[in-house]
Each structure stands twice: as structure tokens, then as C-alpha cells.
């Protein structure tokens, strides 16, 4: 079953060069102990667009997402086989430092998890660790730009030294996105970024994701089909650890190839 989306074409045309896949997965298998969670996943994910992973709970979409920045390394019993290429370079290669990798592949989690520090320090956390700023002015500049990009600046500009945990849920999630942006990643992974938020906060985050798509490769896991249809350009459907189907969102939602996709999208199961 080859379900790759738009295999990279060898042209020098800028239009198509932009569509060269940012992330490629080749025969990825993931095991938790003896239990296999993902089976032979092959997928190309384009840059500067939003790709959503949909599928019923436990289908492996979050597991796959966490393979891309090697967050699964922190789980002892987890084993990954196959290749995941970022810009053509295997992220599981021996010479890749997962710590450096995660700086270029940021991640936003299901529940907002700001650190128990001030808003400023939350955003400055990454730049400080990676030495991105050579002086305090530069650091505050990075913080301001990141907060502006995350659409939070106007709300928090006058209280940067208040704790990040004091913000509302939606603001916290945008703070966490700003924190991820601050280390200048190329890819941003989002694991159900809106599932803990109310509809208004969700709408703001979706707007934000739509803005960010111009600069980043965004990969998002979501349980909301409507959200996948609204914000993503590409959609991949996972079922029981297998990638069933992937393609342009419009096609997946209007004219899926596989019956399982059809059934899931129309709400027959899951």
C-alpha cells in the first residue's frame, strides 16, 4: 500500500520547489514493548502548509507525530524502525542529536503547559537554552516577535512579568505556541491543540495556525473533522496503526478513495 502524497518532482521551478516534501516517512514501524503501534507508514508532508492527522483514538496518529521530533525517545519501551527524513536527512540517524532536532521541530501539546515562570521567561526559555540572543535587547526582541506572531502581544505586553500560568486556557495555548516559535523552528507539531479549549479560543488558535502556515510546516493531530477541513490543506487518515489514506484535504473529505475513510468522515465509526 503506497499512500505517499505527491512524490517530490525534480524541477528547479520555484513553485514546485516549495512543494517539495519537508518531512518524509519511509516504512515507519513503532513498537511499545511487544505491541506494534504503527505499521509501515509512508507519508510525505509538504512545507508551508497545514497537514492534519485524523483517525479514531488509539490509531497511532499521535505516536507518529511524536516520532517526527523524537519525543518518543523519552519513553523507555518505545522503539522506532524505518526512516523519517527532515529535508532529506534521517532524524533517527546516529549523528543526529535529538536535542538539536527538537529545536527545529517544535511541539505544542493537547493541554497548554506553560512553565511556572513569567510570561517573558516562558517565551525566552528556548532562546536562552540555545543561546539565540547575544544580549538582553535581542532577547526581548525575540520574545516580542514571537508573542506578536502568536497573536498574544497586545494582550500581555503590559504584564510580561506575571506568571504564564495565570493566563486563560486559550491565552496559555497561544503562549505555548509563542514559546515554540521563539526557537525558530521549521516544523511545528501540534497534538490536538484545541481539544482543551472553548470554541472562541479554538477559533483564535485556528486563525493563528492559518497565519503561521506561511512560514512553517505545521502538522496537527485533531479529533475534530470540521477543524481538519477548516484549517488544513492536507489530511492523512490513520486507522488501527495504519495510514489508510492521505491527500489534499478537499479530496479526502469530498471524494475519499478508501471505504474506511468514507465511513469515518461520515461518522459511521470512531
Amino acid at each position: 500500500m503506497d499512500t505517499s502524497v505527491s512524490p517530490a518532482t525534480q524541477t528547479t521551478d520555484t513553485q514546485t520547489a516549495q512543494q517539495a516534501p519537508k518531512v518524509q516517512a519511509r516504512k515507519v514501524n513503532v513498537f511499545y514493548g511487544n505491541k506494534q503501534a504503527l505499521f509501515d507508514v509512508n507519508l510525505d508532508i509538504p512545507d508551508r502548509s497545514v497537514t492534519s492527522f485524523i483517525g479514531p483514538s488509539g490509531c497511532g496518529k499521535s505516536t507518529f507525530l511524536r516520532c517526527i521530533n523524537r519525543m518518543n525517545d523519552t519513553i523507555d519501551i518505545c522503539r522506532v524502525e524505518g526512516d523519517i527524513l527532515l529535508d532529506g536527512k534521517d532524524v533517527y540517524a546516529r549523528d543526529v542529536d535529538p536535542v538539536i532536532l527538537r529545536a527545529s521541530v517544535g511541539m505544542v501539546f493537547q493541554k497548554p503547559n506553560p512553565f511556572p515562570k513569567s510570561i517573558f521567561d516562558n517565551v525566552a526559555y528556548g532562546p536562552r537554552i540555545h543561546g539565540l540572543a547575544s544580549n538582553p535587547e535581542e532577547l526581548s526582541e525575540i520574545v516580542e516577535t514571537s508573542l506578536r506572531r502568536a497573536g498574544l502581544w497586545t494582550e500581555v505586553a503590559d504584564r510580561l512579568d506575571e506568571p504564564g500560568t495565570g493566563l486563560s486556557g486559550g491565552q496559555q495555548q497561544r503562549l505555548v505556541i509563542a514559546r515554540a516559535i521563539a526557537v525558530r523552528p521549521e516544523v511545528i507539531l501540534m497534538d490536538e491543540p484545541c481539544s482543551a479549549l472553548d470554541p472562541i479560543a479554538t477559533a483564535r488558535i485556528e486563525e493563528l495556525i492559518d497565519d503561521l502556515r506561511n512560514n512553517y510546516c505545521i502538522i496537527m493531530v485533531t479529533h475534530s473533522m470540521a477543524q481538519a477541513a477548516r484549517v488544513s490543506q492536507h489530511t492523512a487518515f490513520f486507522h488501527l496503526g495504519k495510514l489508510v489514506e492521505a491527500g489534499p484535504t478537499e479530496q479526502i473529505f469530498t471524494n475519499p478513495n478508501d471505504k474506511r475513510t468514507q465511513d469515518y468522515i461520515t461518522g459511521r465509526f470512531g
Binding site: 521530533n69 519525543m71 523519552t74 536535542v99 538539536i100 532536532l101 527538537r102 529545536a103 517544535g106 511541539m107 501539546f109 503547559n113 506553560p114 512553565f115 526559555y125 528556548g126 537554552i129 540555545h130 505555548v176 514559546r179 515554540a180 526557537v183
Partner: peptide, 8 residues
């Protein structure tokens, strides 16, 4: 997780 995901 948040901290690891930042590359710490």
C-alpha cells in the same frame, strides 16, 4: 515534555 520539546 514541554521543555524537552523545546530542545532542552
Amino acid at each position: 515534555d514541554g521543555s524537552y520539546a523545546m530542545g532542552a
